[in-house]
Computed example of a mutant assay.
Amino acid sequence: MGTYHLDLGDAQTEELDDVINLLVDGDEFDVDAFVASDKGSDEPRRGSLIIVRNDERNAAAGRWVQAVEDLTTEQDVVLIVGDPASPEARRLHLTKAWAATSFHEDEDDDPEAIALAFADIAVK
């Protein structure tokens, strides 16, 4: 399993515990295997995945969570696979993503995990 980070923009990231349950056009993939083997597509590839957050949370992530949980909007989301400072780190670009479900231990806290649905996925 690789390390994963949520790209919050402005050179800010939040390390994730895991990225799981990647579904692309109805097929399930291991995230690391998908990133290593993806050749891209000219057609949009719809799907979903779950990001699992850890206890060390970036302050900017609170704003991101509010934006992605707002079902009236769609967000482009970037997940970094590997060290964000490394030029060799791959990026999963999720186009027009929204929070299909979020899992809260306590409703006053940021969610522990967020299921994101997306209109397209690309590896860069």
Rank of each mutant, 00 (worst) to 15 (best):
M1Y: 05
M1D: 10
H5L: 02
H5F: 07
H5Y: 11
H5D: 04
L6R: 07
L6S: 05
D7N: 15
D7A: 11
L8C: 03
G9N: 04
G9A: 04
D10G: 02
A11I: 10
A11F: 09
A11H: 12
A11P: 00
T13Y: 01
E14I: 02
E15T: 00
D18M: 14
D18I: 12
I20Y: 01
L22T: 07
L23N: 13
L23R: 06
V24A: 09
V24Q: 06
D25R: 03
D27M: 14
E28C: 07
E28G: 05
E28S: 12
F29V: 05
F29S: 04
V31N: 05
D32M: 03
A33Q: 11
F34A: 06
V35S: 03
A36I: 03
A36W: 05
S37M: 13
S37K: 15
S37F: 10
S37Y: 12
K39P: 01
K39L: 14
G40F: 04
G40N: 06
S41D: 11
E43N: 06
E43M: 07
P44M: 14
P44E: 12
R46P: 07
R46L: 15
G47M: 07
S48K: 08
S48Q: 10
S48W: 01
L49F: 09
L49W: 10
L49N: 06
I51D: 01
I51C: 08
V52W: 05
V52P: 07
R53K: 12
E56Q: 10
R57D: 00
R57Y: 01
N58H: 00
N58T: 02
A59G: 03
A61L: 03
G62A: 10
R63D: 08
R63A: 09
W64T: 02
W64P: 02
W64Q: 02
V65D: 11
Q66L: 12
Q66Y: 10
Q66E: 12
V68N: 02
D70Q: 10
L71K: 10
L71A: 08
T72R: 08
T72A: 11
D76G: 00
V77C: 06
L79S: 05
I80P: 05
I80Q: 06
V81R: 14
V81C: 08
P84G: 05
R90G: 00
R91I: 08
L92M: 13
L92W: 05
L92T: 05
H93N: 10
T95K: 09
K96M: 12
W98A: 13
A99M: 11
A99L: 12
A100C: 07
A100P: 01
A100N: 09
A100R: 10
A100K: 14
T101K: 15
T101D: 11
S102T: 14
F103T: 15
H104Y: 15
E105C: 11
E105D: 14
E105N: 14
D106E: 15
E107Y: 09
D109Q: 14
D110V: 04
D110R: 10
P111T: 11
E112D: 15
A115D: 10
A115Q: 15
A115E: 15
A117D: 13
A117T: 13
A119K: 07
A119Q: 13
D120S: 12
D120P: 08
D120I: 06
I121F: 03
A122Y: 00
V123H: 06
V123Y: 05
K124F: 00
K124V: 04
